[in-house]
Structures are given as C-alpha cells and as structure tokens.
Design a binder for these strands. Sequence first.
DNA 1: GATTGGCACTCGCGCCCAGTGAGTGCCAAA
DNA 2: TTTGGCACTCACTGGGCGCGAGTGCCAATC
Lengths: 338, 338
Amino acid sequence: MLSERRLEVLRAIVQDYVGTEEPVGSKALTERHSLGVSPATVRNDMAALEDEGFIAQPHTSAGRIPTDKGYRLFVDKLTAVKPMTAPERRAIQNFLEGAVDLDDVVGRTVRLLAQLTRQVAVVQYPSLTRSTVRHVELLALAPARLMLVLITDTGRVEQRMIDCPAPFGESSLADLRARLNSRVAGRRFADVPQLVQDLPEAFEAEDRGTVTTVLSTLLETLVEETEERLMIGGTANLTRFGHDFPLTIRPVLEALEEQVVLLKLLGEVGDSGMAVRIGHENAHEGLNSTSVVSVGYGSGGEAVAKLGVVGPTRMDYPGTMGAVRAVARYVGQILAES
Amino acid sequence: MLSERRLEVLRAIVQDYVGTEEPVGSKALTERHSLGVSPATVRNDMAALEDEGFIAQPHTSAGRIPTDKGYRLFVDKLTAVKPMTAPERRAIQNFLEGAVDLDDVVGRTVRLLAQLTRQVAVVQYPSLTRSTVRHVELLALAPARLMLVLITDTGRVEQRMIDCPAPFGESSLADLRARLNSRVAGRRFADVPQLVQDLPEAFEAEDRGTVTTVLSTLLETLVEETEERLMIGGTANLTRFGHDFPLTIRPVLEALEEQVVLLKLLGEVGDSGMAVRIGHENAHEGLNSTSVVSVGYGSGGEAVAKLGVVGPTRMDYPGTMGAVRAVARYVGQILAES
DNA sequence: GATTGGCACTCGCGCCCAGTGAGTGCCAAA
DNA sequence: TTTGGCACTCACTGGGCGCGAGTGCCAATC
C-alpha cells in the first residue's frame, strides 16, 4: 500500500502538472509544495509511484506526468469536488434565467458550461423516455392529411405528418383528440402504448384505419425520438489542448460530430451522481486522451438527461466537477419552473 | 490588361496550389501543364501577375501562391462551377430522401455538405420571415395558462407559453382558434400583424385581455424567431487546414460558435445565385484566411434560407460551388415535397 | 518585341554537433 | 528511512553548413 506521503506527492504532481502542463521533477515539487522532505526522498517516492503505474516519464531524464491510473486515484481519493463560490452561483442562475424556451435553455447551458470550464460542453436535450405527455394535438391540414403534435412536460415539441388511409371528419378528429388526451395526458411515455391499445374499437369502422395510423405514428414518435438530441459548444477550447494537437484534436472533433458516440458517452453516467471517465476509460478511441465529466440533471427529483464536458485528461478535475454539478443543478431548477 | 496566357498561368497556379498546398514554381508549372512555353517565359508572366497583386511569394526564392485577389479573378473569370456527376446527384437525393422531419433534413444536409466538400458546412433553418403560416394551435394547459403552437409551411414548429390575465373558457378558446386560423392560415408572416389587428374587438370585454396577450405573443414569436437557427458540421475538416493551424483554426472555431457571425456571413448572399467570399472579403477577421461559399435554397421557387461551406481560401472552388449548388437544389426539392 | 537558355544569387530547410541544464538512479552515510 | 553527493541521460537550443528549388536578369534567338 502507498504511504500517506506518497499519495501527497501524487496529489502535488497532478496539481502542478495541471497547472504548468509540463512534466514535474522532484526538485520543483519540493520547492512549490512544503512537503517537509528533500528532493531525494521525493525521488524515491516517485520511483515507487511509477512502479505502481500512477505516473510515468515521457522520456528518461524528464519529470513525471500522471497516468490515467494516477488521475483516477486523484479523483477518487485525493480530492473533493470544488464548490462554486456564491458569486459564481449567482452568475449561473442569472445567466440561465433569461431563457425563453427549451432551445434557449439548452443553448445557454452549453455556452455557460463551456465558458466556466474552458472546455467542450455537451448538453443532452431532456429525454422523452422519462418525460410525461402534456398534450397531444391533431390538426387537419387536408381532408386526408393530419399533423400530430406532441408536447412534453419538459416543453419539448415533436411533430409528424400523417397521411390517412381515408378522409377523416372534423367531428371524428375532435373525438379522437379528446379521447387521446384524456388517456395519455400526464402519463409517462412508457405507459402510453398500453393506454391507447383499445382506442380504435371506440370508432366507426370507416375511421378505424386512420385511428390506427395515428396511434402507430404516435408510438413511433415516442420510440424514435428517444434517440436523443444534443447540443455541443466550446469547441474552440480544444485549441488549448496541447502543443502537439494536430493529432489530438482531429479524432476528438470527429468523435464530437457523432451524436451516437456522445450519447453513449453521457449514457454511461450512473442515474445519479457524477461520472468521470479518464483517458482510456472512454470506449471511443478518439477520446483516449480526453476525460469526460458528466452528470444527470432533471426537472424534478429525477434525472431526465445528461450534460457534461470533454477536456484533456490533464484538466482541473475538482473545478470542472464543481462547475458541472452546479450547472446541472440550476438547469434542473429552471426546467422545473417552466 | 493581362494577356490570355497570363490568365492561363494564374489558373494553373491556383489549380496546382490547391492540389499540392505548396508554393508553385515556374519549372513545376511547365511540367504539369502543357502551356507550350518555357519556364523563363512563365517567370516573366509570374512577375507581371505579382505586380498586379494576383499572386505573392511567401518569401524570396520560393514559389508563388495566389492572393485573395488572385482567387477572386480565378472564381470570376477563369473557371466554371463544376456540375456534379449523375451518380453523385443520385447519392445526394437518396441521402436526403430518408429524412423524417425538418431537424433531420437539416442534419442530413449538413453532414452531406461537409462530406462532399470536406469542409465545414453551415445550414440555416428555413427562415420564418419568408414562410407562411400553416396553422396556429392554442392549447389550454390550465385555466389561465395557454400554449401557443405555430406551424409553418416548411414544417417548422414554434411554441410559447402564455399566462393569461384572466381565465379563458373552452368555447372562447375554440372561437379564438378558429378566427385566428381563418385569418392567418396560408398567409405570409409579414402580413400577419395587419390581419389580426382588429381581432380583440370581436370578443367579450372579459376575454379581450387574454386575446390581446395571445396576439402579442404570436407577433413576438414571428419577430423573435426571425432570429434564425443554424446547424453546422464537419468541423473535423478544419484540421486539414494547414500545418500552422494552431493559429488559424482557433479564430475560425470561435467564429463558428457565434451564430450572429455566421448568419451575417450567409446573409450577405444575394437573394439568388451563389456568393463566394474570399479571405479578407469576409467582415469577421477570424475568417480572414477562409472562404465562404453560400447559396440560398427554398421550398418553392423562392429562397427561404441559406446554406454554405467555410473552408480555407485554398479550396477547390469549382468543385465546392458545384456541391453547394447541387445540395441546395435537392434540399429545396425535399422541402417542397413534404 | 516576345521568347528562351544560361547563370549567378537567394534563402528556407534539414542535418549535424556541441553545450546546457533539468532531472534521474544509485549509493553510502546519517 | 531519509539525505546529500555524484555520475549519467537526454531533450532542447543555437550555430554552422550543404542542398536545392526557385528567382531575376541578361544576352541570344526566333
């Protein structure tokens, strides 16, 4: 097991490296941190830490830099989430409060997060799976053409065109609209299929085809749109990644363009609490030299979506985690209010 | 005035430089293009072209590269838009046809454009200013809380919450909904204000407050949402920009994050036809070493929005212009069909 | 007068090389 | 276990040098 002081040395290495972006040597360490021991001792400790795989040398006779494993230990054991200061919290709140609609909330969140962490921010739109239906609207655009509009409790709106197998009267439409809403309004998406199952039976034979079509479109929308939407921002911060970044930045940008990859990234967050994936812990290899800090947020007590940031493994973990957590909390509040 | 051959030399320089990304010298030019003259002659021509400001040397005793002015001449006089091949056109059509809704159309367009041009693609959502209203829907979420849903002919949907000054009965709501739609459905946004002006007068005094609120929210939505939305993609292509791009890529990424800048960029396109802005012709200085090729697209004969690509000034103009034009054409078709 | 071959010149680039210094590992002493 | 000492490693820097692509100019040619 590693002694107390060796952990302290690891912490110091991580902190220094994050600050300077340069490999840190034994002498510099003792000068910048009052460890109370000599460089030689630190050297011994470093050798031990290297044996255990927590730090590495880019080349012989250079300082040490933390490995993914080192960062992992740092995050798990050696540090705490750094809370935002009161002014920062107020600023977050003020910035988010001006939002006029869902797009705006998500947009502001992304910009805010990117700015606070100086990294790439990713925010998932509130997911439909966890949402409830607020209202279903049916509009006749033409005698045999309807538009279905689905409104969720998180303010999201989805619409679909429907071509009916037969003309559908205004009264039947009103009837269907009313029945549909009385059954599904306020219910969770997952419950909808059951609730509408027997609806066609309540209609005349001639309308039944249309009702069935409408229902299947509705169910389709619920499923299809579970495939979530995302917004990302702060990509310009990627240029702060490092000196060698032609090679680094490219795969990251590519990964960021693939929504699927990003969703999986955020998806791996546990339902509550924060997730930090460091370097190779990320499945996608374009992101092997980045870390992802993500957390769920929600309008009520429950998480309906995720948000997070993507940055270099060499990032300020406590600060980033603090910012991510704070933003998630306030977005949740805003959503609950609207 | 420049002789025929000198223009030919300029064209050859542009083509070679775009291909190789390296300054092109007189010898290489005569070898790769059959100009029928010796390197010495080409050197004279180059000197003349340089005097006129069409080409420049990065440093003495290096080859020449085109200046912005050189590219401008090339685009205006020395080349034609390169049409897509039949298979390419089919591919574009197939790719766009699978789209299920507006978001999907725009998303696919952006990906397609980025892939075809290997540059950054920007697509503006169909603008509301030019659109017509397809339907306005009002939903009662609570006795004194309404939701306004606006559906446009391009399939775009906007929603707004409305807190009413007084409870609003279901029958009044139906009445308002009907009157509103009979007046504005099918009309252009710009005409809406006039058309609804006298509507409150048709209602009982107690409802008039609510009607006025609804109307002003509607008008607000029309105006506010004229502030357009955009989707961008293909940012990973920025890494192909050049060798020195730490400096180049950063301001570009920053510019791309500012929707305002992008909108202005596309906005400068003439109503019809294609616009090419080269290097310093772009107002935003972050984009001084990039060129923007943009064009309007529309569901009918009329352009309702713009799309385009952002790439290095050293880009394949004929090919890029061909791709942009083709994509715009097919997106227009898709929108018209839906 | 335009075109061409010849020629001297420029200058960025890659390479080698030695000097420097931060950092290391090992060892013997405290 | 800690510490000071010491030899060693090796990335990095900057100067010097040769190479070669490319230029500009000039005199000869068509």
